[in-house]
Design a protein around this nucleic acid. Structure first.
Lengths: 193, 193
DNA sequence: GTCTATAGACAGATAGAC
DNA sequence: GTCTATCTGTCTATAGAC
């Protein structure tokens, strides 16, 4: 069963994925052509169809892998202890994980409308699962008598918003940013109306 | 100076703007063709060029008008009183104003990368002005000894995030949502680290 | 597995008739 | 002010050589 280890296929496939990732993030799915992706990989456009049935599948797989990795990564980090500790851990996890995957995060928020309805439903389901993770933590925290769903969405928007301005080497380092957000989230949930 | 009041130009121009607004919001700038816009307006594609020099200008003007209206609208609503009252007013203003202009808000966040560099600079300047409005309010509030810029961005991301899920006729009405956010923002800034 | 070549559709923008 | 017609270029995806 040994596969030929030097086979070009195993080298090209990840190049296609990463070229699509960075080009879609920079210019948008609709504005990027298969020829641009091919040029970034270093092949001709026709060769891409060895690795994806079409452009849509390329987008969908990037988003699906991103969302599944996100859920799996939290599963490994979740301290499963006291609710307020879990909340702090979630905030730090979300910020660091998203900082490390800026392109995939950007695509997953910006390109939802370019998914076919069937593909959209899959991604939306994964997104709902992730929201559910935070909602359950907030329930366990017994946050003030506010609307839990609203609080969940407010916190997630606030945390994900970091990606719109964070750049490596900026004024604040990653840990200092995460610390600040831990504090803000604590204040927010203690007042959630 | 009387202009011919029934002139078709004065009817078509706003139709072009609103057709572009809703189509760009739904499918994205790059995915919408001039022919689609023309069909929505009820003219042929060539006629659009009476109202815009090109597709790029159509996008830019929508975003520019949106940002200038946003700044002007706050200028009219700003109570200019006690800092904490101004903060509450800002939160309510932002949420209601954004709820009423979902398409323009969506475009202004999603299509930044489709602006030419010169146009992008203009929109970014307007956006920075709006951030400055909130930052000054937070300074006046003397929010806890945290990083003010960080707090500003966190609050804005949280407030604008409402647009990703709010739909008219949903479970919570507009005022109830705004009330909740006023409470969450108050908690957040009292803890901002 | 990658190439060249191409099909068939559609893009933005312009010219000139009415 | 809108039309029809068209220029010129691009797109996704496929076929078949190597």
């Amino acid at each position: 069963m040994a596969r030929k280890s030097g086979s070009s296929s195993e080298k090209t496939r990840p190049l296609v994925r990463s070229a699509a990732l960075s080009l879609f993030a920079r210019y948008g799915f609709a504005a990027v052509s298969m020829r641009q992706i091919a040029a970034e990989v270093g092949v001709q456009a026709g060769a891409l169809y060895r690795y994806t049935p079409d452009k849509q599948s390329l987008l969908f797989e990037l988003m699906q892998v991103h969302m599944e990795e996100l859920l799996a990564a939290w599963g490994e980090v979740d301290p499963k202890g006291a609710p307020l500790d879990r909340l702090d851990s979630f905030v730090r996890f979300h910020i660091h994980h998203h900082m490390d995957r800026a392109e995939a995060v950007f695509i997953s928020y910006m390109e939802l409308r370019n998914l076919t309805p069937a593909n959209f439903a899959v991604i939306e389901g994964l997104r709902a699962q992730y929201e559910q993770v935070l909602e359950e933590i907030l329930n366990a925290c017994g946050a003030a008598a506010g609307d839990r769903k609203l609080t969940t969405l407010a916190v997630l928007a606030m945390l994900t918003g970091v990606n719109t301005w964070y750049r490596e080497g900026g004024r604040l380092d990653r840990d200092a940013i995460a610390d600040s957000y831990v504090g803000m989230v604590r204040g927010l949930i203690s007042a959630a109306a």
